[in-house]
Design a protein around this nucleic acid. Structure first.
Lengths: 192, 192
DNA sequence: TTTATATACGGAGCATCCATCCGTTTAACA
DNA sequence: TGTTAAACGGATGGATGCTCCGTATATAAA
């Protein structure tokens, strides 16, 4: 009794629930610094089998992506809001600082930035679109107003900040990253 | 028959030779893009046992470090040379571009930048010293001449470039990194 | 309510890779 | 040439990612 492909059986309740519980376990583990926690351990803490984890998330990156998808969306929303309430350069600066804060609190995102900013991994395609759209919009606005050179590649600003976050660990990290925001913006102004 | 510790038996010829051959295999593999090649495979291609590889190199990072130690030294020497023959900012710019070239040709160095620029790994202590001394010297010179703000952390420039190299892959990569060199230098000039 | 079946579950098990250990071999030195 | 420190090699253990498939169950139809 094969129905039309478009009309599918409703997702099973236990499936949705386990997915949510896995996400919650991962979020908690990542948030407390256990960025290298084995996937088996996440499954164990959730109280499900490893097979269940893999049915919901194809691999580690997919899990990370799912954990941070919401927050990335919020970051993107902040860009829209800033663009509507602040002058171009101020908005860009504020958002870049937000980006630094975001990485600072979500350390697990740093390794994932690889796939997020530059990778070809299809898993991150959506999040990448969201993130690049945010920075592109802010930079484009600043270019139109003439405050930023027109030959800047917006994503490179994020790459640079990601580099400092990735390579420079330790206490002074955030300060250095925010100083780099200043340098980047100053260096992106039109010459002369 | 314990001699003085300072007078030791000469290193065995097969030992030195195998070490060199392992380095050569690794250099060749890394250079052709096989940056994730298993250590077993490097041993196999060299025609030695895995135990031999590990006697010469404590782990993967140690091997990478050995492969690139010479070239890092050459990069550092270039900094000294540039400092002696060019005005401060020109020297800094030229060296940062060299740094980009260096990463571009030795892609394996990108993952290793982690330990190199910011890690606490003792293996990289020497190379890190060499590299930071090079950039510190160039930046200090430009600060003295008043061409660069005094609050810049020199290594952060390398971190930023490393970020672009790490996250932004693909054909246009080098161009983007070199444009970032311009942005970084422009943004590092004194305000006003 | 009963039945049929798509969907989800669980975890044993395979594959990969890093790193160690230890019995055997060999080059250096007297 | 004999002694011995140094090097060899690969079996092995441990960690982790991911798959496979028999079992269980929620959902929808009868």
């Amino acid at each position: 009794m094969e129905e039309d492909q478009t009309r599918r059986r409703r997702p099973r309740s236990d499936g949705r629930k386990n997915r949510e519980r896995l996400l919650e376990t991962a979020r908690s583990a990542f948030g407390s610094g256990e960025i290298d926690i084995p996937l088996d351990e996440i499954a164990r803490r959730t109280g499900v089998g490893i097979g269940t984890l893999y049915r919901h998330f194809a691999n580690r990156d997919a899990l990370i992506e799912a954990v941070y998808r919401d927050e990335l969306n919020r970051l993107a929303a902040a860009a829209t809001h800033l663009a509507g309430t602040q002058p171009p350069v101020a908005a860009l600066r504020a958002w870049l600082n937000l980006f630094v804060d975001y990485i600072a609190t979500k350390q697990v995102i740093a390794p994932a930035l690889n796939s997020l900013l530059g990778g070809t991994d299809a898993i991150y395609a959506d999040s990448r679109t969201v993130l690049t759209a945010a920075i592109d919009g802010l930079v484009a606005r600043a270019m139109e107003s003439g405050d930023i050179r027109p030959d800047i590649e917006p994503v490179d600003l994020l790459c640079a900040l990601g580099g400092v976050s990735n390579y420079a660990t330790g206490p002074g990290w955030e300060t250095r990253a925010k100083r780099l925001v200043d340098v980047l913006i100053a260096g992106s102004r039109p010459e002369g």
